[in-house]
Structures are given as C-alpha cells and as structure tokens.
C-alpha cells in the first residue's frame, strides 16, 4: 500500500508544477456554468417558482456542483493513457513491475486530480456564492457524509472509465464508448436532477451509474435529508463493488491477450 501512496504523492507533487494550466481550465468551466446560470435564469422568469421541486438557486447550485465533479475529475490517464498503453504494448512494461497496473493507475489518477478537484471546488463555490448566494438550509454537520459521497462518486466514475478503456484489449478504438458514457453523464447527470425527467424515465436513471456518480453527491448538498443520504450511500457502495469487480475481471481477461514481440 505504501508504494501506491508514494505514487499518488509523487504525482500530486508533479501536478503542483502545473497550477497555472489548471487555473486556465477555469475559463471553460466558468463559461459553461455561466451559460447555465443564464439559461436557468431565463427559464425561472419568476424567481419564486419551483420546477420539479427545485428553486432557481437549488437548480443552479446543482449544475455548479455537477460541473465541478465533471471538470475537476476529468483526466486523460484513465482514458488516453490506458488505451495507448494497451494499443502500443507499453502495458508490458507495467506487468513485470512490483505493482498492479490497475492500482498504479488509480493511485496516479488520484494524485493528478486531487489538486485540480480542490481548485475547481473552490472556484465553483466562489462563482455560486457570487451569482446565486448561499445554499439554502446548508449545515456544515452534513459535510462528512457529503465528502464521503463525493469520494465514492469519484471512485465509481474512475472504475467505470477504466473498465471502458480496458476494452482496448479487444477493440482498437474504445473512445466511442467513452463518448456514450460522457454523453449520458452530461445529459442525465450534470444538466438536470433526476426529478426533471418524465416519471417513466426516473426509475431507470435511479438504477444507472449516473445516479451515484453525479446526482447523488450534488443532491446531498442542495437538498439533504437523512433517508435520501442513506439511499444514495448504499447505492454508491453497491456500485463501487460492482464496478471494481467488473474492471478487474475485464483486466484479468484482457491482459492474457497481450502478445509482446521483442524490440
């Protein structure tokens, strides 16, 4: 375990050298949030109106939080690096090293996004406070559960992305599958809370990974109640186990197909 912590720490230290690059990424983030603030302001022409049980402030905070999760955890290591390692055969170098390739990638990923996520969280909170004001009925006592839910959401998202990238053992280009996952996440999880969707679609979304990756953590921040928190955390734990098992299964099966021809 210590070696993975070391990898994580080393990557974190490396990312500290590129704070400026991360800060420039705020421009896209800010613009996206800004577009949504304008969009929701337009739709909530009457500020006291409720849409699917959400006020204007809650709806905008929901988008800000899910966008933080989206921008703050995006990382090419989980997508491009794994695929490239498999396609180019570089993965063979990782197989004889004294670490497990998948755990190594997870440690590296966490090291890479830790600083980025904290910075985006800070920026998002500032934007939210300026444009919308404080979150209604928010209590700091809920923070431990919210942070746990955020962490679980980030881990599940990472496992799913890695499982998709590992498909490169069988197909040359797995990016179309990443696109589909990204689109599902953006459309169903980031832009709208589940309650905005038609009644018939809600149970399907609640069973999908979107519910635990983006809706769950954001919901706990903007509209907390004890039973919802338990439901979300339980669903996250189930998804965490299932996605990790699937990832390892794909990897174990795929890695047997590696064929190294010297050079």
């Amino acid at each position: 375990m210590r070696k993975y912590l070391f990898i994580c720490k080393a990557t974190l230290m490396e990312s500290l050298q590129y704070v400026m690059n991360i800060a420039l990424g705020f421009i896209s983030f800010f613009m996206m949030v800004f577009v949504f603030i304008n969009l929701w302001n337009y739709i909530y022409s009457d500020p006291s109106k409720l849409i699917s049980g959400y006020s204007r402030g809650q709806m905008i905070w929901y988008v800000i939080l899910t966008e933080i999760l989206w921008y703050g955890t995006r990382n090419r290591t989980l997508t491009v690096q794994i695929s490239d390692d498999i396609k180019s055969g570089t993965i063979a170098y990782g197989l004889n090293k004294p670490y497990h390739y998948i755990v190594y990638i997870i440690a590296k990923h966490i090291g890479e996004i830790a600083l980025k996520f904290v910075l985006f969280l800070g920026a998002g909170l500032v934007i939210g406070l300026i444009f919308v004001g404080p979150i209604r009925d928010f209590s700091p006592l809920r923070l431990p559960l919210i942070l746990l839910s955020l962490l679980l959401g980030i881990l599940i998202n990472s496992f799913i992305r890695m499982a998709i990238s590992v498909l490169s053992f069988w197909i040359e280009d797995c990016f179309p599958f990443h696109w589909i996952y990204d689109k599902l996440l953006i459309l169903v999880g980031i832009m709208f809370p589940v309650e905005v969707f038609p009644q018939w679609a809600q149970p399907i979304i609640r069973c999908s990974p979107i519910y635990v990756v983006s809706y769950g953590p954001a919901k706990l921040v903007i509209d907390y109640n004890y039973s919802t928190a338990l439901e979300i955390l339980l669903a996250q734990l189930i998804y965490l186990a299932v996605s990790f098992i699937l990832l390892m299964l794909f990897y174990q099966k795929g890695v047997k197909r590696v064929n190294v021809n010297g050079g």
Binding site: S28, M31, M32
Partner: peptide, 16 residues
C-alpha cells in the same frame, strides 16, 4: 479554452 468557448456558446440561443 477560447476555442471551447466558441463551441459552448454556439449551442444555446442568444436570447438567454
């Protein structure tokens, strides 16, 4: 980022 801004704004009506 500047190129992304172009794309982001393109898909939302200017009326908002």
């Amino acid at each position: 980022n500047l190129n992304n801004i172009m794309v982001n704004f393109q898909t939302y009506p200017d009326g908002i």
